[in-house]
Simulated assay, not measured.
Amino acid sequence: MTQDEQLREQLVKLMRGGQAFRTREELLEGITRQEAGRKAEGLPYTIWQLLEHLRFAQHDILDFSRNASYQEPAWPDDYWPAQAAPESQEALEQTMRTLTQDLEELVQLVQNPKTDLYAPFPHGQGQTLLREAMLVAEHNAYHLGQIVLLRKLFGYLE
């Protein structure tokens, strides 16, 4: 295996998680609409708001990574939902499906040996696919940790 193949393999493992902690699928398994919208005293967000933030931010990074006509959303307004709870269980499940789908699209970009991990995006300010993949991994791990803490606080996880 070449160094390039090793790097791509490790990036994929990093983005998918499950090496230092359980996978995203395991951590989010069984979340209900009620749980997702539950507010913890003293915290500014619900699980739903964290999930929607993750979905939006990850999709934004994916869009930036493959779209030369990328338009930057407004920070922080576009990145954080105002609604504390999902409208339905289906809306919650759709958000979690989209998280997986967008992550897998980013994984495909990273796995493609024709994609230069080090080439700056022409429409960016020096960002590369390598940087964006690591950003997704770091951002997802950070907010998944917050979700785990909330689920433990509410008694949904051991």
Score class of each variant (00 low, 15 high):
Met1Ala: 12
Thr2Glu: 07
Asp4Pro: 01
Glu5Ser: 07
Glu5Tyr: 11
Glu5Lys: 10
Glu9Gly: 10
Gln10Phe: 11
Leu11Val: 02
Met15Gly: 00
Met15Asp: 01
Met15Ile: 03
Gln19Met: 12
Phe21Ala: 13
Phe21Gln: 11
Thr23His: 06
Leu28Arg: 02
Glu29Gly: 05
Gly30Met: 08
Gln34Thr: 12
Gln34Arg: 10
Ala36Phe: 04
Gly37Asp: 01
Arg38Met: 05
Lys39Val: 11
Lys39Gly: 03
Glu41Thr: 08
Glu41Ala: 08
Tyr45Asn: 13
Ile47Cys: 11
Ile47Ala: 05
Gln49Thr: 05
Gln49Leu: 09
Leu50Gln: 13
Arg55Tyr: 09
Arg55Gly: 09
Arg55Lys: 15
Phe56Leu: 13
Ala57Trp: 04
Gln58Cys: 12
His59Arg: 15
Asp60Ser: 15
Asp60Trp: 12
Asp63Arg: 13
Asp63Gln: 14
Phe64Cys: 10
Arg66Glu: 12
Ser69Ile: 05
Ser69Cys: 10
Tyr70Arg: 08
Gln71Val: 15
Glu72Leu: 14
Glu72Trp: 15
Pro73Ala: 11
Pro73Tyr: 13
Ala74Tyr: 10
Asp78Gln: 13
Trp80Asp: 05
Ala82Thr: 14
Ala82Glu: 15
Ala84Gly: 02
Ser88Gly: 09
Ser88Cys: 12
Glu90Tyr: 07
Leu92Ile: 11
Gln94Arg: 14
Thr95Trp: 07
Leu99Val: 06
Leu99Ile: 10
Gln101Pro: 06
Glu104Val: 08
Glu105Asn: 13
Leu106Met: 11
Gln111Asp: 01
Pro113Lys: 10
Pro113Ser: 12
Lys114Gly: 14
Lys114Ala: 14
Thr115Lys: 03
Thr115Leu: 08
Thr115Asn: 14
Leu117Glu: 02
Tyr118Lys: 15
Pro122Tyr: 10
His123Thr: 07
His123Val: 04
His123Ile: 05
Gly124Asn: 03
Leu129Met: 06
Leu130Gly: 01
Arg131Cys: 02
Glu132Lys: 05
Ala133Met: 00
Ala137Asp: 00
Glu138Trp: 10
Glu138His: 06
His139Asn: 05
Tyr142Lys: 09
Gln146Lys: 10
Val148Gln: 08
Leu149Pro: 04
Arg151Val: 03
Phe154Leu: 15
Phe154Gln: 11
Gly155Phe: 02
Gly155Tyr: 04
Leu157Ala: 13
Glu158Val: 13
